[in-house]
């Protein structure tokens, strides 16, 4: 049985994750991997529950692909353990792979095979009973919208978007508990990204999906939770809202009003000395300027800011809304914090 690992081993991992009361279907416990003298991942622990879609983020060289390859049984870890559906990947790789669908980065496919031939071959390799191969392949193709256009086409003639769909259809074959997708939207145009996103979102609830990507808005829209790695370690883990509270402790608001920056600062700073006001210097033709107001999340002013401003500048406010920090800001903050910690520890 898997060791009782938890994400609390890593900074930023103390966030409670609702889906994880049940045993995790993906679990990494203190994974380490070194290539020669270079450490690719170091004491990396993570857990993903059944039905969760989890984004796996990190800068280039952070150890995402290495972790995914270890979880997929393609590469042994130097130390630590990985489990798929509770099966130790290092000791029983074939059994673990029966529960896994994996789409590697760049999704290599045989150019000379037809889509249906390729998927039938993969289904047989994954142990799908002979009688069910055709039905299983048809089902996967249906879900990935491959049936009409590409069924009989050579893989080598497919567009990048359809190749990615073939890769995802392959990952779906055999009814896995876990699907690991390494950069599934890389190189796709916005239409293709949209359709792949829909496809992945539809997988949620049934299988656990671990998905790495550099396109952070995509991850934010698709995933229930994100895990951010940097320099081979988990630096943050949790829902976007939880990470926002942890890493970006300031609330941001956008204001468009016919007032000056100085007047705004004169109003806000006496009430909240930690407030910040940034704005465009030049007013529009109607004297309206746009401002970004920053306040500590814990500030009492944050909750009733609009009423406070409206009271001070009646009739002069044209637009007001809260601007929550997106995943990109969280990602940058989390990775910067990691680099700063690293620099401090070296000193």
């Amino acid at each position: 049985m898997p060791a009782s690992a938890s994400t609390s081993a890593s900074p930023g991992a103390g966030v409670t994750v609702p889906g994880l009361d049940a045993p995790p279907v993906i679990e990494a416990v203190n994974l380490c991997k070194t290539y020669g003298g270079v450490t690719a991942i170091e004491n990396l622990s993570l857990r993903v529950g059944r039905g969760e879609i989890v984004g796996f983020l990190g800068p280039n060289g952070a150890g995402k692909s290495t972790t995914m390859r270890i979880l997929s049984g393609l590469m042994p870890a130097t130390s630590g353990a990985a489990f798929i559906s509770g099966i130790p990947v290092a000791w029983k790789p074939e059994s673990a792979k029966m529960h896994l669908g994996y789409m590697p980065e760049n999704n290599p496919l045989p150019e000379d095979l037809r889509v249906v031939e390729y998927l039938r071959w993969r289904a047989k390799l994954k142990g799908v009973p002979w009688r069910r191969v055709n039905a299983e392949v048809d089902g996967a193709m249906e879900r990935c919208d491959l049936v009409r256009k590409t069924r009989g086409r050579l893989v080598g003639t497919l567009s990048k978007g359809f190749r990615q769909r073939v890769g995802i259809a392959d990952a779906l074959l055999g009814g896995p508990d876990v699907i690991i997708l390494d950069e599934p939207t890389i190189g796709l145009d916005p239409h293709q990204i949209l359709s792949i996103r829909r496809l992945i979102k539809n997988l949620g609830g049934r299988v656990a999906v671990l998905i790495s990507s550099h396109i952070l808005p995509e991850i934010e829209q698709m995933c229930d939770r994100v895990i951010i790695v940097n320099q081979g370690r988990v630096v943050a883990s949790g829902t976007t809202a939880a990470l926002r509270a942890e890493f970006i402790p300031r609330a941001k608001f956008t204001l468009a009003a016919a007032v000056t920056g100085a007047a705004l600062e004169a109003l806000l700073l006496p009430r909240e000395p930690a407030a910040s006001v940034e704005g465009t210097g030049r007013p529009g033709p109607d004297g309206v300027r746009r401002f970004t107001i920053g306040l500590p999340s814990c500030s009492a002013l944050a909750d009733g800011l609009l009423a406070f401003l409206w009271g001070a500048f009646p009739g002069k406010i044209l637009e007001f809304h809260a601007t929550p920090p997106d995943l990109e800001e969280i990602f940058i903050e989390a990775t910067h914090r990691c680099w700063e910690d690293e620099t401090k520890s070296r000193k």
């Binding site: 390859r69 029966m98 994996y102 993969r122 390799l125 994954k126």
Partner: peptide
């Protein structure tokens, strides 16, 4: 080189 070998070993083959 093409990555096909890695993709092959992601299935339960020895």
């Amino acid at each position: 080189r093409s990555g096909m070998l890695g993709a092959l070993f992601s299935t339960p083959v020895r």
